[in-house]
Structures are given as structure tokens and as C-alpha cells.
């Protein structure tokens, strides 16, 4: 697309969106701005595609609504769950130390299962096997709280998933999913998040669809959401049948998408529109 044409789209948007939003998307697409830790090589966190206003909400721990979920998670950590009368703290007393670096390394290969495991699934394994509890749903209040808390502990640590060795075939599947067109609108993840970040799709500035900040607090949702919830939403938007949370398809896709953001800082709880 030529510059003149893209500027026209931009000007039209100015009229309705107001200067702040457009300044945000303009900076995101046209001006080489120094994004500091939010950019690694050519990869940029969704943070850099947001408006200044949304970024401010994320930056300020008192304003960031995700912080309440971190606190919930922290108190849940030492709450007994399940028939064994144990809490997470029974085995991981010093969460700040024991959980450091965990979130940026998932999904991980699990030899016993013979496949990849997300952090939710890893947490559920302990709840079921060690604590005698019932597996939590990905987007339940409890799971989102634990995920947000554990994510926050690795704040700033670079995304670093292993995609070689036994993970390699799962990585390949996730990558194939990413480039596969689907739905009546016949689009792949790459069509939006690789080919068009920084561009406006109606009122939305497309980002690279990175997941370094998940669970992300989405203003539209008014709560944090799991990576798989986001995948479902993006599938439905193109009128494609989504998969289930925790399905092998989404777990492998998560591995690939996480790898796309390698080196980006863990940003949980991020705030997005």
C-alpha cells in the first residue's frame, strides 16, 4: 500500500477517533520510536500498539485493574483447596522464589503426557494429583487469579520457551495452525498479526498478537482472560469454529505464538483494549 493511501485512512480516522488514539497508532506504524524493553529486534509487545491512555493504566499499579487479581492469587496461594488439606504454599512456600521464571517458560513438554502442557494445565495437575482438588477452568476466577499472580512474579523476565527436542513436532503443528486460513472470512492469524500490525481494521489498531502479557486484563472483558479465550475470539471473528480451551490445537498454537514473542518481557497483568 502506498503512503498517500495509508495517510488518507489515517486522516479520516483522525476526525472520529481523536488525536490521542491516532497519535498512538501513527507512532506505532510510521515513526521509528524507541520502545525500550517492549521491543526486541523486530518484535513488539501489544503494549506498543495501545494508546498512551491504556499504557498509563498498565504502568500504574494502583490503576491497573489486573493488580486486584494478582492480590487474589496471592491469597489463594495459601488457601487450602481439595481433600488433602493443602494449599499451593504447602509445597511452594516462597512463591516469589519458587515461581520465578516459570510463566515465561510455558508451554513446556511433558514426557509423561507425551505432549505440551500450558501453565494452567500444570497448575491443575498439582491441584488434582497433590491436593485432591478439582481441576479449575482456564477462565475461572481462581485460575485467572493464580495465573496472574504467578505471571506477575516473573515480571520483566524474557519470554523463553523451548521449541526444539521433543517440543519440535508440537511447535511445527502450532506454526501450521498460525498460517492456516480459516472461517468464512478465510483469514490466518498471520494475515492480521504478521502482515498488518500497526494498521487499522475499522477502529482497532492491529498488534502482533503477542502473549507476553497474559492473562491480559482486557477493558472490553472487564476482567483478565486466558490466551485460549483470546484465540477463540480471534477464530470467531473470522467466522471459524473455535477449539476448546486446553485443546491440543490451542496448546500447540500457544507454544508457537509464545515463541514469536521470544525475548519480550513478561508483562502480566498487561492491560489491553
Amino acid at each position: 500500500m502506498t503512503n498517500i493511501k495509508s495517510k488518507l485512512g489515517w486522516k479520516l480516522a483522525t476526525a472520529v477517533l481523536g488525536a490521542a488514539v491516532v497519535a498512538g497508532s501513527f507512532a506505532a506504524s510510521a515513526v521509528a520510536k524507541d520502545w525500550g524493553k517492549f521491543q526486541v529486534e523486530d518484535r513488539r509487545s501489544g503494549y506498543t500498539y495501545m494508546t498512551d491512555e491504556t499504557r498509563d493504566v498498565q504502568n500504574d499499579d494502583f490503576e491497573n485493574p489486573g493488580m486486584l487479581w494478582v492480590e487474589n492469587g496471592q491469597s489463594l496461594w495459601s488457601t487450602k483447596m481439595g481433600s488433602a488439606g493443602k494449599s499451593c504454599a504447602s509445597c511452594h512456600a516462597d512463591a516469589d522464589k519458587d515461581m520465578k521464571g516459570v510463566a515465561p517458560s510455558y508451554p513446556k513438554y511433558n514426557a509423561k503426557m507425551g505432549k505440551m502442557e500450558t501453565l494452567e494445565q500444570r497448575i491443575n495437575r498439582d491441584i488434582v494429583e497433590k491436593m485432591g482438588g478439582k481441576a479449575l477452568k482456564f477462565d475461572s476466577k481462581e485460575m485467572l487469579s493464580l495465573m496472574t499472580y504467578v505471571g506477575k512474579i516473573s515480571s520483566g523476565m524474557p519470554v523463553n520457551v523451548k521449541v526444539d527436542g521433543p517440543a519440535a513436532p508440537f511447535f511445527a503443528k502450532g506454526k501450521a495452525f498460525y498460517y492456516q486460513r480459516r472461517g468464512q472470512l478465510d483469514m490466518s492469524c498471520a494475515n492480521c498479526h504478521e502482515d498488518n500490525p500497526g494498521k487499522l481494521i475499522r477502529a482497532n489498531t492491529l498488534s502482533e498478537g503477542q502473549i507476553n502479557g497474559f492473562p491480559t486484563y482486557r477493558l472490553k472483558w472487564q476482567k483478565p482472560g486466558s490466551v485460549h479465550r483470546r484465540f477463540k475470539g480471534c477464530n470467531k471473528n473470522v467466522r471459524a469454529k473455535p477449539f476448546k480451551r486446553g485443546s491440543d490445537e490451542y496448546v500447540n498454537l500457544e507454544l508457537y505464538v509464545k515463541w514469536r514473542g521470544r525475548g519480550l518481557p513478561t508483562e502480566t497483568p498487561s492491560v489491553r483494549n
Binding site: M1, K5, G9, L200, I201, R202
Partner: peptide, 22 residues
């Protein structure tokens, strides 16, 4: 069409995308 294309004739409509050319 406005999801991806700007159309000056429709400037009374909010939110013109720029994924495609005007």
C-alpha cells in the same frame, strides 16, 4: 468494506480502516 478501506465519500461514517488501499 470500511473495516479495511477508507472511502472519502463515506467520511460521515466513523472508523475507516487502512489494511487495504483507499
Amino acid at each position: 468494506c470500511l473495516a479495511c478501506h477508507a472511502i472519502s465519500d463515506l467520511k460521515d461514517q466513523p472508523f475507516h480502516g487502512n489494511v487495504g488501499p483507499s
